[in-house]
């Protein structure tokens, strides 16, 4: 029980410090569980990140869950996961209610509009990152290998998915499943 409480508090703090989600949280978790507490080794942590990327669910949640599981079994996993998300969820709800309550204030309204635009910019940034990763792997492309380094199969899967989405409004879930199947066909 004590271990679960320690995990819960540690991950609550990590969760509250990570704005921007996803990859922003990884260094924070690393610092706490590998460098400070030595709960897991470097190697295990690297494995944990790999598996968290390979399994469904948000990366930050998966990593927290897995670290909790590794250190404290199922109670540890529950404690770490809840800790990692609780603060953010509560703050989200409070901020949402704040915007709802003062939606007739010109100041508050323009703040929300600004956040919408800025967050779109950030989503574009995430989209470009994912595109580069899908088309060029982990190394970033330069002018010299813009074509030679391109993964044509990935480009094909991407274009087919775009067509299916824009033209036929195909279900997002089907897109994920079909592109996964296409990957198995092309890459194995």
């Amino acid at each position: 029980m004590n271990a679960a409480l320690t995990l819960f508090l540690a991950f609550t703090k990590i969760g509250l410090l990570s704005i921007g989600g996803g990859y922003a949280i990884i260094p924070l978790i690393h610092e706490r569980v590998v460098e400070q507490a030595a709960w897991v080794s470097e190697q295990v942590f690297a494995d944990i990140i790999t598996i968290s990327q390979m399994t469904p669910g948000p990366l930050a949640v998966n990593t927290s869950t897995f670290v909790g599981l590794w250190i404290g079994g199922v109670p540890g996993a529950l404690a770490a996961t809840l800790g990692a998300v609780l603060g953010g969820v509560i703050l989200s709800l409070l901020l949402y209610r704040f915007f709802e309550k003062y939606r007739f204030s010109a100041y508050v309204n323009s703040m929300l509009e600004g956040l919408k635009s800025a967050s779109q910019g950030l989503i574009v940034s995430a989209a470009v990152t994912i595109l580069l990763l899908a088309f060029y792997g982990s190394g970033s492309p330069g002018l010299h290998n813009l074509l030679s380094g391109l993964n044509w199969a990935a480009l094909l899967i991407f274009s087919a998915s775009m067509l299916a989405l824009r033209k036929w409004r195909l279900n997002p879930l089907l897109i994920i499943l079909l592109s996964g199947l296409a990957g198995v066909v092309v890459y194995t």
Binding site: A134, F158, G183
Partner: peptide, 30 residues
């Protein structure tokens, strides 16, 4: 699980599909 080639291929394929999902969303939202 980590060393399985089929899972790796599945995920690599999904990556391109997921990229399309997000680009599609970004177009409409922007």
């Amino acid at each position: 699980f980590v060393s399985n080639h089929v899972i790796a291929a599945l995920l690599k394929g999904m990556q391109a599909g997921v990229a399309a999902l997000i680009v599609d969303l970004v177009i409409d939202m922007c």
